[in-house]
Design a binder for these strands. Structure first.
Lengths: 231, 231
DNA sequence: CGCGGCTTTGATGTTCATCAAGTAAAGTGG
DNA sequence: CCACTTTACTTGATGAACATCAAAGCCGCG
């Protein structure tokens, strides 16, 4: 990780409207005081499950994974977070310890504010508190929704789901580089590494996708959509 | 459903401290104005996914299921809510429509307050907003945690989990009456009705439990705990 | 250069959903 | 209140979906 000297502050931040829309300039100045901008390299761990929450994070650029580790070193990836995501919102208000670990799966720049400052503002500015709640609830609902949606799909449907997720939601291109390993895909959509590989190969043989290591290109998007739906 | 005339109001409510601890008497009077206490019979539906959220609910006595219905009439039970649960907290602050349906699985008494009143108080009283967030976040974290925990268990482990859940968390007795059908158990822990029955019978044959219709008695709790853990 | 982690493919066996068929229980209308 | 219909429960047989085990190639890193 590496601290970054920033020129422009919160006031002109393009993400300001997303959640800080209800804060006035004085309140933003207050946040600014403890604010740091930090750069993480792919692979760096930002927070570890069980450690104290002292900071409120939000993602400016890059990609993160939010995950949990269980007995037997089994890891579940709960979600992938992209730019403008408020990753640390989860469990920040119910716990003083992180319930999830966070790691960079691409080079990532994060804005960090003291968590007590956020709580202070939430307490003193009701509009802001409502914005936080809205965002938090939305994020949680998304996690639950995708978890239950994936759960009922067969393996082929899960792979189709995750490929289309990266192509449409994350990279907005049919050709992209997978930011995670085959094993991590399995941790995200609940299947073994071997089967992730097997089904990717199957899709390749069926001309649905092109594969070159981590590079994926979707060749037949209609077919993939169909597999996602019925699989 | 049936309206109930109540003598005592929020001020003396045993659950007040849980979430309304930061409201003063004036604020409680404000809530009281729109407050209703409603009785639902087992099987009654309180809210339907997709309908407008106008009310804030909390459970005084009884048991509810919170669930989602998917294409093909497939139902997932997200959680069971018991006394002192704030069932409508989920999605209330991110949506104007319910994201989940709620139904009574036992005779239930619910306190209902206008949702706008709650939002108004959250806006004007920061402490209260923080309490709501805390509760909300906690509830969501629990859902996610149990979902991922169940997901990795085999069927026997899931049944053990749910039996111990009812025995320890809900009824606090080794003998209890299941509030839900075999099919609903399947919807809760993600397995087919047939396999729910099959494994219950198996546990019965192995003398781990006693079954008489909906009555369950856990005879060998150590063994069940072991199955829950390793299954 | 060797070691560990990631990737790949094949063979094998287990777990689980599905199908079928029947009994019991509970709700519904005449 | 009884015939009728639907819903819940139960067991067995079958096959598909999936995890596990094994073995080997590849790549980056110390």
């Amino acid at each position: 990780m590496k601290y970054i000297n920033t020129v422009s502050g919160c006031k002109n931040c393009p993400y300001r409207a997303l959640i800080f829309g209800s804060l006035d300039n004085k309140e933003l100045d207050f946040l600014e005081k403890t604010r740091k901008e930090i750069f993480y390299k792919k692979g760096d761990v930002l927070t570890k499950e069980g450690t104290s929450i002292n900071e409120f994070l939000y993602l400016k650029t890059g990609l993160l994974k939010v995950y949990k580790t269980r007995a037997g070193n089994k890891t579940h990836i709960i979600r992938i977070a992209g730019p403008s995501d408020f990753v640390s919102l989860l469990s920040m208000f119910s716990n003083d310890k992180y319930k999830y670990s966070i790691a960079a799966i691409e080079d990532t720049t994060v804005c960090v504010v003291d968590s007590e400052s956020i709580k202070f503002l939430a307490k003193s500015n009701g509009e802001f508190a409502l914005e936080l709640m809205k965002r938090m609830s939305y994020t949680y609902d998304e996690i639950i929704d995708s978890t239950y949606r994936i759960r009922q799909k067969h393996l082929r449907g899960r792979i189709a789901y995750i490929l289309l997720y990266f192509a449409q939601k994350v990279y907005r291109q049919n050709r992209f580089e997978l930011p995670i390993s085959r094993r991590e895909i399995g941790e995200l959509i609940n299947m073994t590494t071997e089967n992730v590989i097997r089904i990717l190969s199957e899709f390749r043989k069926d001309q649905i996708i092109f594969i070159d290591g981590k590079i994926i290109e979707i060749k037949d998007i209609e077919r993939l959509e169909r597999i996602k739906k019925i699989g």
